[in-house]
Nucleic acid binder design. Structure first.
Length: 424
RNA sequence: GGAGAGAUGGCAGAGUGGUCGAAUGCGGCGGUCUUGAAAACCGUUGUACCGCGAGGUACCGGGGGUUCGAAUCCCUCUCUCUCCGCCA
C-alpha cells in the first residue's frame, strides 16, 4: 500500500512511475487526492464539534458538582444539536476513509528506476547467465519419468490421497527433499539468518499484512470453520512477526529464514506447464526475509541476490538472473530479480527463486516501523524477501540435468545432507 | 466438547460514570552525585490524524448502544488463560 501523504505530495510522479507497470493510475490518484481533501475538511469540522462537546460536558460536570443543577440542565439542552452533527461527521468521515482505503489497495507499488519497461516475460532483462547446459545421453528423460523410474515421487498416489498437485515423495526422493531443506537452512544460518519455524496457517490480519488479502484470496486455501488460511509462502507468517512493531534503527537489518510447506490453489492455471513438479498445490520452500533501513534496502537486495546465486552455484545448476520488467513484476514489489535454472530434458528455464524489495509497500500495511536514535517520530521500514530456494523445480532440474546412464548424480555440496551420491 | 475467569501504555498492574491519555512499580532515556560504575535522588518516557503554530481530535481487544459525559454501565463478536474431557 502506498503512503497517502506521498501520493498527495507527488501525484504526477506516482502516475508516471506506474505507467512502467502498465497501470493507468491517473483516475485513482486524482480521486484519492480529492477524497483526501474532503476527509481533512471533515476532520477539521468534526474535531471542532467534538472539542465543543468535550468542553460543555466538562462544564456540566463542574456545575453539578457545585449543585447548580438548573444551569447544568440548560447546558445539556445545547448539546443535542452538536451531538447530531458529530454523528453525521463521523458517518461521512468513515465512508470517505473506506473509499480512500479501497482505492489505495488498488495501486501497485512504484517500480524502482532500474525496472525495465515491458509487457511480460519476454521483456525481462537477463542480468547474468552462468553455467553450461549439459549435453544429455540418448534416451534422457524428463523428471516425471525419472521420478517414476527410480521410485522417487508418486504423482498418482498423491491424486488418490489428496488430489492433483500433491505429490508423494518416497525413498530417496523423500530423502533428497529433506537434504535440500537442511542444506538451504544450514546455508542461511551461516549467512546470518535466524531460523524460524512458523505456523503453516495464518489469520486474516496476517493475510492482509503481507498483501494476500483481500486481492489474492482465491489463491489461498481457506479453512472456513476457523477462518484461517494455509500459507502460500513462509513470507506471510515470518513477515507478520513484524506487524505492528516499532524497531530500533540500530537493530536493523533483521534477517530471518524459514522452511515451510507452501499451499497454493493455483486456480485457473491448469493445462499449461503443470506437468510433474513444475506447478504444485503443495511444495516445500526455504524463504529468506529481511527488514531493512530504507537507505540500505537496495544494498540488502544485492546481498540477497548474491546469496541465492551462491546456492544455485553450489548445486551446479546452469542459471540466469532476470530483472523483471514492469509488466512481469508483482503488484507489491519495487524491484524483483528472478532466478531460473535450466531444465535440460524439458528444454526450458524454470523459475526457482524470486528476490524482491518491497520498500515500504508491505511495511505500510503492516505498520512496521523503526525509530532512529534520538528521533521521536517512527519511520516505515523496508521489507525484502526471496526464495532460497523453492524445492520442486530445483529437484526437477537436478534430476534431469544430472541423469546419466548409471543413475542420477547428487551434487557434491548436497552429499553430506543426502548421505548418498547417486540415485540408481 | 463442558464449566469458569479475563483482555488497560515496552512489561507488570491500579482504576467501576466527570479535572483519566490513564496511578504505582519495573524497564528505557536525560541529569545530580562519583576517578569510573553501581546504589540513591531528580526529571522525562505511547501511537495516529488535523493544524504554519498555539493547539485540537481519536485510541484502555473489535463493533454497536445508554448518557451532557464511558477504560468504567449494557449488547455483541474475537481472542487469551484456568479446570474437566479428549489427544500427538
Amino acid at each position: 500500500m502506498l503512503n497517502l501523504k506521498f501520493i498527495q505530495d507527488n501525484p504526477e510522479l506516482v502516475v508516471e512511475k506506474l505507467k512502467r507497470k502498465n497501470f493507468d493510475a491517473s483516475e485513482i490518484v486524482s480521486t484519492i487526492i480529492d477524497l483526501y481533501a474532503q476527509k481533512n475538511k471533515l476532520q477539521g469540522e468534526a474535531d471542532e464539534a467534538k472539542a465543543e462537546m468535550n468542553k460543555i460536558s466538562k462544564e456540566i460536570g463542574l456545575l453539578f458538582r457545585e449543585g447548580k443543577a438548573e444551569e447544568a440542565n440548560a447546558a445539556k439542552a445545547r448539546t443535542s444539536e452538536i451531538k447530531e452533527n458529530i454523528k453525521q461527521f463521523d458517518t461521512d468521515f468513515a465512508a470517505i476513509e473506506e473509499k480512500v482505503t479501497n482505492l489505495l489497495i488498488l495501486l501497485p507499488n512504484l517500480p524502482h528506476d532500474s525496472v525495465p519497461s515491458g509487457k511480460g516475460e519476454q521483456d525481462n532483462e537477463v542480468v547474468k547467465s552462468h553455467g553450461d547446459i549439459p549435453v544429455l545421453h540418448e534416451n534422457a528423460m524428463p523428471h516425471w519419468e525419472l521420478a517414476t523410474k527410480y521410485n522417487l515421487i508418486d504423482f498418482e498416489l498423491g491424486v488418490k490421497i489428496t488430489g492433483a498437485g500433491f505429490p508423494v515423495y518416497r525413498g530417496k526422493g523423500a530423502q533428497l527433499q529433506r537434504a535440500l531443506i537442511n542444506f538451504f537452512l544450514a546455508e542461511a544460518s551461516k549467512a546470518g539468518y535466524e531460523e524460524i519455524q512458523p505456523p503453516l496457517a495464518v489469520n486474516e490480519a496476517s493475510g492482509f499484512g503481507t498483501g494476500q488479502l483481500p486481492d489474492k484470496e482465491g489463491q489461498m486455501y481457506h479453512v472456513t470453520e476457523d477462518n484461517l488460511y494455509l500459507i502460500p509462502t513462509a513470507e506471510v507468517p515470518v513477515t507478520n512477526i513484524y506487524r505492528d512493531v516499532i524497531l530500533d534503527a540500530k537493530d536493523l537489518p533483521y534477517k530471518n529464514t524459514a522452511y515451510s510447506a507452501c499451499f497454493r490453489r493455483e486456480a485457473g492455471s491448469y493445462g499449461k506447464d503443470v506437468r510433474g513438479l513444475n506447478r504444485l498445490h503443495q511444495f516445500d520452500k526455504v524463504e529468506i526475509v529481511q527488514i531493512a533501513h530504507p537507505e540500505k534496502s537496495y544494498e540488502t537486495l544485492d546481498e540477497m541476490v548474491t546469496y541465492v546465486e551462491g546456492l544455485v552455484k553450489k548445486l551446479g545448476l546452469p542459471y540466469r538472473i532476470l530483472r523483471l520488467c514492469g509488466g512481469d513484476a508483482s503488484f507489491a514489489s519495487a524491484l524483483t530479480y528472478d532466478f531460473e535454472v535450466y531444465s535440460t530434458a524439458q528444454e526450458k528455464w524454470l523459475e526457482v527463486s524470486s528476490v524482491s524489495n518491497f520498500e515500504s509497500f508491505q511495511a505500510n500495511r503492516l505498520k512496521l516501523r523503526f525509530r532512529e536514535e534520538g528521533v521521536k517520530k517512527p519511520q516505515i521500514a523496508h521489507t525484502l524477501n526471496g526464495s532460497a530456494l523453492a524445492l520442486p523445480r530445483i529437484v526437477a532440474a537436478l534430476l534431469e540435468n544430472n541423469q546419466t546412464p548409471e543413475g542420477i548424480k547428487i551434487p557434491e555440496a548436497l552429499v553430506p545432507y543426502t548421505g548418498f551420491d547417486i540415485i540408481n
